[in-house]
Design a protein around this nucleic acid. Sequence first.
DNA 1: TTGTAAGCGTTATCAT
DNA 2: ATGATAACGCTTACAA
Lengths: 336, 336
Amino acid sequence: MPSPIRSITTHDVARHAGVSQATVSLVLGGNPRARVAAATRERVLRSAEALGYRPNILARGLVRGRSYALGVLVPDLSNPFYLDVVTGVQRVAAEAGYVVLPGDTREVPAARHLEALRARQVDGLVLDGVGAASLPPDALSGTEVVLVDEPPERWPGVASGALEAGRLAAEHLLGLGHRRLAFIGPASDVHGFRMRERGFFRALRDAGVEPRSEWVRRTPPTIAGGQRAMRTLLASHDRPSGVFCANDLLAAGALKTALTAGLAVPGELSLVGCDDVELARVLTPELTTVAIPARELGARAARLLLRRLDDPAYAPRSDRPLPVKLVVRGTTGAAG
Amino acid sequence: MPSPIRSITTHDVARHAGVSQATVSLVLGGNPRARVAAATRERVLRSAEALGYRPNILARGLVRGRSYALGVLVPDLSNPFYLDVVTGVQRVAAEAGYVVLPGDTREVPAARHLEALRARQVDGLVLDGVGAASLPPDALSGTEVVLVDEPPERWPGVASGALEAGRLAAEHLLGLGHRRLAFIGPASDVHGFRMRERGFFRALRDAGVEPRSEWVRRTPPTIAGGQRAMRTLLASHDRPSGVFCANDLLAAGALKTALTAGLAVPGELSLVGCDDVELARVLTPELTTVAIPARELGARAARLLLRRLDDPAYAPRSDRPLPVKLVVRGTTGAAG
DNA sequence: TTGTAAGCGTTATCAT
DNA sequence: ATGATAACGCTTACAA
């Protein structure tokens, strides 16, 4: 049974224009080196217009061996940061005629997403924060892959200055006179988070500040996680005076808990987030954070992926991470 | 030129199993009334497994006249409410083997999205808050459409209790003794917003409270919009004591501005939002709001759409809107 | 310059 | 119960 309302095909246009179906394809297929008489082309174009012809991208894909679809996997689409990455991919992809299928691994494991994307013949994959290394061996074989903020070992990737982000946060807090510094971040081995953490502690050590293990709180990188972690930090009789949170969601949760507990922020506690999502400016006081260019990260990933789709041998020359920037707002102040 | 890495097809499996390609399709196609000898079926299954066969959904779609893809259009994906609606659609769609192509009309107009989705042969469309009525005449023709929170005139739809939401907000504020009530909402003619507004004002009038026109602030339904509107409200020497915001983003912005201006919330100003997105519980004080079941709204829309795909004549019997619920938190208190 | 024909991977209708 | 065979809508040699 054919589709209920059959849409206009090249055959219809051909009949209407009095030419062969192949000629229609030549004219409408956007093939640059298609040589068709101006008069014929005109006629075909007019017929297509008149009938309201729309090419069937699926059929085109079938013969070209391309689906013109890209998969994007992130850990949590409800985190505005990842959503922005996806949006960046989307924008670039759309310009090239690609559609993007976003997926998030909160409820469905990455491997299952990959399975589904593969059945859909996606031409390429962008993976951010899903730990490509710990995936089933050939979950990624046969598809072009670009990684975001992961070590570019087996696959090419784009990166933000995660190490630098951690360092900036540390130096800002140190510069304000803080020495009693805590860190809140996920326990997962997501490379981007690891680097933020490493940058932070490296800067501390460089300044001769030895981190205390009880001030390193591991928790899911969500608002709820931030609240829990801050509750623990406040429960100890020996409180830190400054905290770096591995992302803004954690920071938002931490801030909430601190304020609810009656702490003055930044009077008694300074807080630095990371990402600079819109939420950061809605909080009161506004969140000091490190801005990561999420959209640009996604856009870059998409550009790299699209290039490699055309030329699998293409390797980016500059692996330089995207610049990050400290944004000082209201949650940080001089140490008591 | 075929795709670089040709994947396993039914032909490969057929060769491997020593049967015809058609038989493979019969076994693997999931056709319930396919009668194949148990031994043959077993052999085919084993071969498919061995070769790692994955059906090509695009090819299947081509012959079935289905793409197994659904489009979802919302005004703003960065609004967690709409993201939740999309997530709801996604979950249901995925279970039925459909993929969803989300689009947002912030940068690209709905008509252009529709154009692209149509070229991709999407089987159906879910539209939320994009004003289906004001689209080009045949932008939606030839596709199954389900509307969310719009008047179900030409197309079937699902709805939340938007009218009720406005009423709940009003009655809550009235119950707290507020009489000087303002409203912040978008100027656009998005039906859902209109209903929330109507419900609010209707309840006011029912209570004998006449709304003041200078306390009706129109602004884009975003955080920035909420800030602007609240700034205007505060600038007038005659301030309202309670405000209903058409969504939580507006409320978050309004709260921020009020707090920054030094107002006590809820001491001097009570604030009610709408949607109950996660953000509502991160703010300090936590936002009183009306919970709308966004995910369920999306899930319902998807279920309706999928049903109609199988049976275009199907019309839902119960149009009952999804229940909404007032969630009293910290931004509302008794009138001074 | 244009038309014919093969084929992309699948489903589905036939014969066998 | 299984195997040819003809679509699905398109692209792309190759022939005319």
